[in-house]
């Protein structure tokens, strides 16, 4: 039994283990790269979305539109200076 366990056998075993580790690592690397690609694509979509939303916000809150809404829908009017107590 013991005659089979020669010290030189360690070399192919280690080589096998290292090779398996290498394959496992490269697989991990590949999986991670897929994940980063998906994430960066998502990041770009979200960035695009956020700039669209910023634009929408700016367009909805543009002073001219608010003024029109206040005057036509809410019946508001610009205050005279005397009505502005704490600007």
């Amino acid at each position: 039994m013991g005659s089979f366990l020669k010290p030189w056998l360690l070399v192919p075993v280690l080589a096998g283990l290292l090779a398996a580790g290498q394959i496992w690592l490269s697989h991990l690397r590949y999986e991670l790269s897929l994940e980063t690609q998906a994430l960066s694509a998502e990041k770009q979509i979200v960035q695009g979305e956020s700039s669209k939303l910023r634009l929408e916000l700016a367009s909805m809150t543009r002073p001219e539109r608010l003024r029109k809404l206040a005057q036509q829908e809410l019946g508001m009017a610009p205050p005279s200076p005397a009505q502005v107590v704490h600007p």
Binding site: G48, S51, R54, L55, L57, A58
Partner: peptide, 8 residues
């Protein structure tokens, strides 16, 4: 406040 913005 946003005065100019680019969108795709």
């Amino acid at each position: 406040r946003t005065l100019a913005e680019s969108v795709e």
